[in-house]
């Protein structure tokens, strides 16, 4: 039995929740005030996901391009995702939602532009 303490992010209450885990599975969640807390705790302890946003330099543009993962990716992949972005060289013109990097780090998630450039 393993215990994790996490803070709920759903509202300003920020409940401190204790999650009991066994063999990678959630056994119980305590300390939450509402159902949303429990759902979040389970997700966070089994497969934490994060949206990643960043900027990448674009040749020929003084302004870098802002990008995001189309969907949240596993938290553990954030740094690899950033490293992969260091090697991306998008070319102008770019439209919002254009794919800048497909299937980042094998997550199945694309990185897309969040603005027009050029």
């Amino acid at each position: 039995m393993e215990e994790k303490i996490i803070t709920c992010i759903n509202c300003p209450m920020g409940c401190r929740m204790t999650v009991s885990m066994e063999n990678g599975e959630v056994r119980s969640v305590t300390g939450n005030t509402c159902k949303r807390g429990e759902t979040y705790a389970k997700q966070e302890c089994t497969m934490p996901l994060r949206m990643v946003t960043a900027v990448v330099p674009v040749d020929g543009s003084p302004m870098p391009l802002s990008v995001k993962t189309e969907k949240p990716i596993p938290k553990a992949s954030i740094h690899d995702c950033m490293r992969a972005l260091a090697d991306v060289h998008p070319s102008l013109p770019i439209r919002e939602k254009d794919v800048v990097l497909a299937d980042v780090c094998g997550t199945g998630v694309n990185i897309i532009a969040t603005r027009n450039l050029g």
């Binding site: 990448v56 950033m82 972005l85």
Partner: peptide, 8 residues
């Protein structure tokens, strides 16, 4: 430095 250098 620029962000690409920083990332690398």
């Amino acid at each position: 430095g620029d962000i690409r250098e920083a990332l690398k």
